[in-house]
Design a protein around this nucleic acid. Structure first.
Lengths: 202, 202
DNA sequence: GTCTATATTATGATAGAC
DNA sequence: GTCTATCATAATATAGAC
């Protein structure tokens, strides 16, 4: 949404190149020159589109924020999913869609956030608060809905299992990111995730 | 072991300062000047002790390598532990000792490796191969020993549970690192880890 | 909207005195 | 083993022509 529109080709190109280089070499390891020359313009031209290097980084976080807000499913959509999918299917779908539906740029932004999370406050918020803690709360809510719907036993500890689901996936993410970065086959990770979900729900 | 000895105070001081700054600001975000001035010497003096910035980083990885090799328990030590501890206790001990016994510098080096793992090949090896994959193999071996000793049922899938243990912990590490970095209380994470281990073993 | 030119500061690194 | 001095290059950023 906030990503530069296609009616502004250079700006879009700068944005995409910045995402690419920041994710590969880090924010501090990438210069304005790197970006501008990769795009095919002079550094000074870049400043017409973004007022500084940090402005460019912030525009990436802003894009990320909008992306998160837009892809957040509504209460009705969640109810719909819960009616049509088993808990196993819901989470299989959820995790694998992150991996597969993620376009190239979303994947790079994820990597960028992982890379900068201990140095940059906005990256920290995304990684720790949104990707980790808020997701656990979301999972707990989903599990409670399944309990209410009678798909999980009353004794099922939603809070506990929200962490079982969340941390296992987060742990995989480091390995998964390396595997993707190197274009290696990630099927063994998907299979592991399915076995994990079977264990939890079956 | 390979960390500069105390008979060479300046070199040790440079090393510790580099670990500190690299872990906080990243390798690219830290200058030789930063390090030298924090130590209280001129940049040129630093080059007497380390021939380049990357040499300094590599000495940290070397230290890390030695630390890993030295702290690796022998077969006999492992057998001893397995005799005296239940599986739950073994892993509780293992995970919490990483968190608590880790001195300041080991924790910073862990963070440094997390920060650089997608940009630096040596950091990648530590994070992906040693911290993740080799640890899973180690866990599987431990679980098999417990099976042989009759402490776990014959049907226990050691390979599967090695990943259950490993990924959950790795997932926590991101959150844990943030919590430690900010000096926040980490007891809720330890408690979660214990509940997780209970679930696996009880 | 892009370029040339330029300013300013930061950075990694070396030479040589003490 | 540390310092002063210096260098070459790289970095962020601006001014102003076209």
């Amino acid at each position: 949404m906030s990503r530069p529109k296609s009616n502004n080709n250079t700006k879009q190109s700068i944005f995409l190149t910045a995402v690419d280089l920041f994710s590969k070499k880090g924010y501090d390891g990438t210069s304005i020159r790197d970006i501008a020359y990769t795009v095919g313009i002079k550094e000074s031209s870049l400043y017409f589109h973004y007022k500084s290097k940090s402005d460019l980084l912030n525009s990436i976080f802003e894009y990320c924020d909008n992306w998160l807000n837009e892809s957040k499913p509504t209460n009705e959509q969640i109810d719909e999913l819960i009616k049509s999918l088993s808990p196993f299917e819901f989470f299989e779908n959820f995790f694998l869609s992150i991996s597969d539906r993620h376009d190239d740029i979303s994947q790079k932004i994820s990597l960028l956030i992982m890379n900068e999370q201990y140095r940059n406050e906005k990256a920290r918020i995304f990684s720790l608060e949104k990707n980790c803690r808020q997701v656990a709360v979301f999972f707990e809510d989903i599990l409670n809905r399944y309990k209410t719907a009678g798909c999980l036993p009353d004794t099922f500890d939603s809070n506990f299992f929200s962490h079982e689901l969340n941390y296992y996936y987060l742990g995989m993410v480091t390995e998964w990111s390396h595997v993707k970065l190197r274009n290696e086959d990630d099927n063994y990770l998907k299979e592991r995730l399915r076995k994990h979900l079977s264990f939890i729900f079956k």
